[in-house]
């Protein structure tokens, strides 16, 4: 395992309550992001989409000042993409729950965002898995809080990860490190 991977990979048994991570890498929200989101969701009728597909409508409404802001779900999904676990091996099995999501101020086209995270709780679920609660805070380029959330996710232990890969004919980790 190389040094970078060791730093980024976390399994249930290695995660500590109270630990924080360095701020994530950053990303600038573009108009294309919002258009692609509307395309993909199929929502060209709804309120958010209308900001982009019908400017005349929005000139005439109270949303005018909030034109070109990202839907909460886009901010939420894109910050997950900034996570190192989206690029490297990780112990995460699946999300269980978004316990709370607070979209506190709009993220606008041209804003740059990143997230910070803290582990607030962990509970074992048998020898191979556990549930981890984390608070994630998305901030803009001025360091102002844009969105906060608490998520619960299932993680596997390092032993479970290793056992999983013993079964395969070609160990995934070896293949990846060689790539």
């Amino acid at each position: 395992m190389n040094r970078k991977e060791k730093a980024l990979t976390k399994f249930f048994d290695e995660i500590e309550i109270g630990e924080t991570r360095p701020p994530s890498r950053r990303r600038t929200l573009t108009e294309r992001d919002i258009e692609n989101y509307c395309d993909l969701s199929g929502d060209w009728v709804g309120t958010w989409a209308a900001m982009f597909s019908d400017e005349a409508h929005f000139e005439a409404t109270r949303f005018t000042e909030d034109r070109k802001t990202a839907p909460a779900n886009l901010v939420l999904s894109q910050q997950y993409g900034l996570s190192p676990t989206s690029e490297t091996l990780s112990g995460i099995v699946a999300l269980y729950e978004f316990e709370e999501i607070n979209y506190l101020q709009p993220l606008r086209v041209g804003d740059t965002f990143y997230y910070e995270t803290e582990v607030i709780d962990k509970q074992p679920r048998g020898p191979e898995y556990g549930v981890v609660r984390t608070r994630r805070v998305v901030k803009n380029q001025r360091g102002e809080v844009v969105l906060t959330m608490v998520a619960r996710a299932r993680f596997r232990t390092r032993a479970a990860w290793e056992a999983m890969h013993e079964k395969g004919a070609e160990p995934l980790r070896e293949r990846r490190e060689g790539a």
Binding site: Y37, G42, D43, V45, G46, L76, S77, Y80, L95, F98
Partner: peptide
């Protein structure tokens, strides 16, 4: 599917009129 994809698809299905 990504959690956000499921939620996005749901928003599209609901089609809240402007």
């Amino acid at each position: 599917a990504h959690a956000g994809l499921t939620l996005a698809a749901c928003c599209g299905l609901l089609r809240v009129p402007p």
